[in-house]
Design a protein around this nucleic acid. Sequence first.
DNA 1: ATAAAGATCATT
DNA 2: ATGATCTTTATG
Length: 197
Amino acid sequence: MKLDYSFYQNPDVEDVAQKLLGKVLVTQFNGILTSGKIVETEAYAGPQDKASHAYNGRRTKRTEIMYREGGTAYVYFIYGMYALFNVVTNVKDIPHAVLIRAIEPVDGIENMIRRRKLKDVKHNLCAGPGLLTQALGITTKHSGLSLIKSNIRIEDRNIKISDISSGPRINVDYAGDDALLHRRFWIKQNPWVSKAR
DNA sequence: ATAAAGATCATT
DNA sequence: ATGATCTTTATG
């Protein structure tokens, strides 16, 4: 069943990041349904987190979306090529977010392969934040959409997951000491987790 | 108006 | 380790 606002409005963003592991991220655009099991996430704890776009309460046109109520999609463009998908958490005006870093393909795999311009299923189909958005057809124009009311949603399909591992977030060295915090979570030994760089 | 950086990825 | 590629943001 689809996750509701009560799931997303949890005040503990690290807790949500871990609970998202094993849930299924689904998009349904133009009748094409694609989905994947979330296997890797990162928590961004708003104003107190030097790695967050909302650090120190920064509000810009882009980051404004993070101040919406939990259960909103925050998608932004980075490095001139990639859209990264985040789940906004906590209540309105508290800019917490969870970056979805990797999924394991579940539904519509042929369409995911086509969107990625691959020949067949390879490890790089959706193991990385910039790759899974391509595979699911997510772009910046989806930023601000409700995960409860739009064609992007997250479902609990009662998938049991094994142990959770944690470590520092990727590519946030600009965050000083906050770069050392263990706010990246993944399903232990899952082959679809992104390559750590 | 300009410049610099960036929650990445593929390749060497 | 480096290059591709361009939006967002800060600064002047």
